[in-house]
Nucleic acid binder design. Structure first.
Lengths: 128, 128
DNA sequence: TTCCCTGCAAACTGTTTGCATCGCT
DNA sequence: AGCGATGCAAACAGTTTGCAGGGAA
């Protein structure tokens, strides 16, 4: 992990992710950043998202639809993925922590409490 | 959902999935089925896996690495995905059902208890 | 005979990489 | 000046699709 050199593009990407509670895909990040950096490329977006995730400055959530989601909220919280509209929501359920404990002891592996993912229909899709 | 016509390829795919507790990717299925059907194509494998999943004869688990896994065990059970070796394990933790309940009430959406996915390091990778 | 299913190849999507150039430090 | 970061385009991997021919009903 060598020192990163400052870049306006990377800062813009991080700022954007810190300003939203949605969980953008690389593509959404690209679409948004393009407003300020019309010539930015997908390569740069992907490279910077990976770099920031490596540095622990954001969480990279691999999702059920294949596309990763990015989250600047790095506190321990579970996620929900809607199998219909593919949105990703935070799921702040304290019980998850306890469950992670239980699972870990019977399981003998290490369970990462930040990466518990529930699937189903989000409130909006359920209502519709 | 129209009636399916019998095909030896599809039966072989289902038989294979019922005979294993690993959670093969489409590619693993292809590799295995090829022993009996050397000319089978990936298109056929993907088509049949989707058909079987549609019929509810197997579970299609979208995974963190992008590749889906397939599971002929359609009883309610959570899964674990190893972020190092990418293996998928069954996680039979009764508490997950309770958690799904809790989550559902505070959440107002529908949580699918068969699709709760934990992430972390599997026992083998943890030991290594 | 009908029409679903197959094998094949081409198309697609999301992501990564090689390279010349740019711009922090 | 040195070297990491950028934009661009080509390469990639996993999956889907169109089509002509084959096989179950």
């Amino acid at each position: 992990m060598t020192a990163l050199k400052y870049s306006r593009q990377r800062e813009a990407i991080k700022d954007y992710l810190m300003s939203t509670t949605t969980h953008p895909t690389a593509d959404s990040v690209y679409a948004h950043i393009r407003k300020d950096f019309p010539r930015i490329s997908m390569g740069t977006v992907y490279r910077n998202l990976s770099l920031l995730a490596e540095q622990g400055e954001l969480q990279q959530l691999p999702c059920a639809d294949g596309g990763d989601r990015f989250d600047a909220n790095i506190t321990a919280h579970a996620h929900f993925f809607c199998s219909k509209c593919q949105c990703v929501l935070d799921l702040d359920i304290p019980e998850v922590q306890g469950l992670t404990q239980i699972a870990t002891t019977t399981f003998n592996g290490r369970i990462d409490s930040q990466q518990v993912v529930f699937h189903g229909l989000c409130p909006d899709c359920l209502r519709a």
